[in-house]
Nucleic acid binder design. Structure first.
Lengths: 354, 354
DNA sequence: GAGCTTGATTTGAGCGTTCCAAAGGCATTG
DNA sequence: CAATGCCTTTGGAACGCTCAAATCAAGCTC
């Protein structure tokens, strides 16, 4: 009696379709059908084949399937080194989400190393040439990113995490509505009684930064609050932020919405410098919910991106694109959520822990 | 005239070995040899074939290669969700290193999602059954981790990031010498004039934690410094650490070596609570160099793991194991490095920034 | 009962590569 | 000159699967 389900083939004893077929007393093709188009078989036959598959612990060989069907069921993702500082502090969460969504759809994520600098096309070309992947997920989409156009030109399915902020829109993407996030931050602050709410962002021209600024602006306007003189820009690092936020504090700002947690931390420093306490004296809201945000003191209220949902949507759009290459591009904008912590306390309550 | 190098085949026009062969006026097998065993060919022929390959932008199909050679050139890695808190704060750096090392060796990393709880074998079995991967890299190796034994039993090559702390040693692994890291931390503190140096770790029984404690202990002993009453244990979170470190501070400790950055942060809180300044009044050293360490104030001196090197070694060991499954197991212990920041200031110098 | 449709299964071929064995060329040798 | 060897190249088969088309058995219509 052949091996049973509980001890599947160890390496080196490949169970093939043909073996299963022989055991079930059918042709190989019928076994293939049992797996790929079960509704073609008579229920009775299907049952017999399924039992044989189970008993022998059969799994179709991906290599053979890929060769025949010209589809690898693999999704490529170029992983870039986090150059510290500002970029994507939580990429592993995103990757996990991606991987999970892909797995559930019968796909897998194939990683390849992207060089630190701008994204080069080399890795993509290599994977593509060897028919290694069926499509790509892009992230860290930069302003003059050549990848979208390049991939679109050769008809390769792809989805970007992040909009294209300049030039013509190409392909599908999933992104998080930054404006909505800062808008919600302002709403939260207004509800707490704040009226002089400033925005600390990056220099104009960065798509992401302008987006986040816009949410602050529109919410302020909606409440009839002035925005003039309440906006500053700085580089992404803490030190620059500390300096940039000073004029805002001088102008009597009671709350700051920052375009990133890093910038928010710059506010913390600037406040301490003038013997003011973040949270108690001036409320601060960050953006990204980086791991650091929760462990600062006071812990930082911040806008969290729904990375799990983003990963899921990326895979969904990518599969849709593969299924129908000619479909009109689909774009998904997801809502971030405000994580309220101690840096935006309710006025009545006590000051945050020492 | 066929297409030139500069415009490689767009999707759907696969250049095959046979096409190249025809163009070079040789048999397909010769082209295969030109790629896999160039020394078999007459230099003249080799040159001709190479030119044809270049001109046509040929790339061997991975699927066909895998089918024939039974080797996918893929390395599996089960990515787990970071459950926040304590674990692996910088997994993306490790993944990038892994990916890069694999790429350079002609391999690629294949991701699959591990369920949050304990590592299950399901994903591994699936990948293996379909001959999808040639081997695995394991991380987050837990105490009662069944994966090593399971993989070893069926002769699947694997490398663990992390030693096995209990039971029989199985297979190859790469790890970071935690004891050496805390030892170096003590050396550093002693050089700064500290003598009452405490250790804040996790409850005994965690392999990693005991290792780190041991380095502190041996360095203390080497310098003839007492360790009794200078050691405390707490859970991994900040709050627990804050409480656990109190007795140490009460005992007049001037420096604390913590088993993680998170624990070190707990020290920060405990110190502030008693109106003492981390760095100025009591030196603190963390472990892991998490992104947070550099942006705390004062910035945290911490022990950094050489993740890039770990990734490289993992791939190296794995390839060696594949090349020679019967070789004796290889274990690599890498040295961490101390990153000195403001939480361990030189006595003469000014206190850290406000 | 001949002709047609429907449903279930099989046959034959081929995806692109590498393995194996064998063939061809050319020089060296008895 | 035929036999031997080496070096280079080739032909055929196979890896495990799925596509397209062919086959076969029934059921139905007129």
């Amino acid at each position: 009696m052949p091996r049973s389900t509980s001890s599947p083939s160890p390496k080196g004893s490949p169970v093939t379709l043909a073996m299963v077929a022989r055991r079930a007393g059918v042709s190989p093709q019928t076994v293939s059908n049992a797996i790929n188009s079960p509704d073609l078989l008579r229920p009775e036959t299907l049952e017999r084949v399924r039992r044989a598959i189970d008993e022998m612990g059969y799994r179709p060989s991906r290599a053979a399937q890929s060769l025949r069907t010209r589809s690898s069921k693999l999704i490529g993702y170029g992983i870039q080194p986090a150059p510290g500082g500002d970029t994507a502090p939580v990429m592993d969460r995103f990757l996990h989400a991606l991987s999970q969504a892909a797995d559930e759809a019968g796909y897998r994520m194939l990683l390849f190393a992207c060089p630190p600098g701008g994204p080069s096309l080399e890795g993509y070309e290599e994977l593509l040439g060897r028919h290694d992947v069926d499509g790509f997920v892009l992230s860290n989409t930069a302003r003059q990113d050549p990848r979208q156009a390049w991939l679109a030109k050769r008809g390769v399915p792809f989805v970007g995490f992040g909009r294209m902020w300049s030039g013509r829109q190409i392909g599908d993407w999933v992104d998080v509505d930054g404006a909505s996030g800062t808008d919600a931050a302002v709403e939260h602050l207004v509800a707490l009684g704040h009226r002089r709410i400033a925005f600390l962002g990056w220099p104009r021209g960065s798509g992401v930064g302008d987006d986040r600024a816009e949410g602050w602006q529109r919410a302020m306007r909606r409440h009839g609050l002035p925005t003039r003189g309440r906006r500053a820009a700085s580089a992404g690092d803490i030190e620059a932020a500390r300096i940039a936020v000073k004029p805002l504090l001088d102008a009597g700002t009671t709350a700051v919405v920052a375009a990133s947690d890093m910038l928010a931390l710059g506010c913390y420093h600037a406040l301490r410098e003038r013997n003011a306490a973040p949270g108690r004296d001036v409320a601060v809201v960050g953006f990204d919910d980086s791991p650091t945000a929760g462990i600062l003191s006071p812990s930082l209220t911040t806008v969290a991106q729904p990375l799990e949902a983003v990963g899921g949507e990326c895979v969904r759009l990518l599969l849709a694109r593969m299924a129908n290459p000619a479909a009109p591009p689909e774009r998904v904008l997801l809502e971030p959520s405000l994580v309220v912590r101690d840096s935006t306390p309710t006025p009545g309550s006590d000051a945050p822990a020492p």
